[in-house]
């Protein structure tokens, strides 16, 4: 059994997988990795099945010590990770020797990194997932919000050949990003000027953004007199507009129903781009064609 010690944590380090689809009629958030693409890639690079837990870190990553030999891969936001003080390559399988210390460090571009470790993770799950729910996570998934001194336990499986992703294919996460949207169920309830403003002006991510939702600072015109909505489903990628007129993009840990008008739905393929936006970055919505 491989043990990995968390020496120190970054800003917010959690174990994530593909969440818990199937429990949303009971009000359970979907959960799972924010940037599903980077998480899947990390697992692929170490030969783990899709949906194996990965460490998702936010803006500043943790320091970890591998107590035995391991195969790992790091994807997502641009960082300068070190292994025993030497630069470690990203987007490739890395063989780690016992007692090695990995320092992920602070993210230069993008918001979240994903660390995959080859093997079978021994971690407590709730309703089929290790993803910490927004409430009661310390009871339901006690292993999943990383703490200093914590030991991750992973049953080793035989090493694979090194896999890598060429540097020109590493995603980059610019400070101004474009995401494609479909008209939401209440698109037609918004005025022409609100819709036009939604599709033309850039929106800045507020610092109140988190795994539940990204709050945008700019206001849509003529939002204060919009009718309410009888609570109806919301999904990761739903853009809702509360009476303040400041849109909120719901993300992985969002609630399952809401009463604000749903102006748009982000294209599933573009959710990873949003997951990598950080406070202060700008989002430009484009209608999906």
């Amino acid at each position: 059994m491989l043990e990995v010690e968390i020496i120190s944590t970054g800003l917010f380090d959690t174990l994530q997988d593909e969440g818990r689809p199937g429990y949303q009629s009971q009000g359970v958030p979907l959960g799972g990795a924010m940037d599903r693409q980077s998480a899947a890639l990390a697992n692929q690079l170490v030969g783990n099945p899709l949906g194996t837990p990965v460490v998702e870190s936010t803006l500043l990553g943790p320091r970890l010590r591998f107590l035995g030999p391991a195969q790992i891969a790091l994807t997502g936001a641009l960082v300068r990770p070190t292994l025993n003080g030497h630069p470690m390559p990203r987007y490739t399988t890395v063989n780690v020797s016992p007692e090695a210390i990995l320092n992920i460090g602070s993210m230069k571009q993008g918001c979240r990194t994903y660390l995959a470790i080859r093997g079978d993770w021994r971690v407590q799950k709730w309703l089929g997932s290790c993803s910490p729910p927004p409430y009661q996570s310390e009871v339901l998934t006690p292993d999943s919000q990383l703490q200093p001194g914590q030991l991750l336990k992973i049953q080793n499986t035989p090493n694979i050949e090194i896999r890598q992703f060429p540097p020109q294919d590493h995603p980059i996460f610019p400070k101004i990003c474009e995401v494609r949207v479909f008209p939401g169920p209440e698109w037609g309830a918004f005025s022409d000027s609100a819709r036009q403003s939604f599709l033309t002006q850039p929106f800045t991510l507020s610092k109140d953004s988190n795994r539940m939702g990204l709050r945008l600072k700019e206001q849509l015109p003529e939002a204060e007199h919009l009718p309410g909505l009888l609570s109806s489903a919301v999904l990761p990628g739903t853009v809702q507009v509360p009476p303040s007129g400041q849109p909120i993009i719901l993300m992985a840990d969002a609630q399952t129903t809401g009463g604000y008008l749903r102006i748009a739905q982000v294209s599933t393929n573009d959710l990873p781009i949003l997951a990598q936006c950080r406070p202060g970055d700008q989002v430009q919505f484009r209608l999906h064609v």
Partner: peptide, 29 residues
């Protein structure tokens, strides 16, 4: 409707969310 859709076990349907007067069915395209 939610029960009928669940029982039909349509391949590709992942989950559904019933509300007051709406039902949202999430599928894998």
């Amino acid at each position: 409707w939610q029960q009928a859709i669940e029982q039909a076990a349509i391949k590709g349907v992942e989950y559904s969310i019933p509300a007051y007067c709406s039902l949202t069915v999430v599928f894998n395209p």
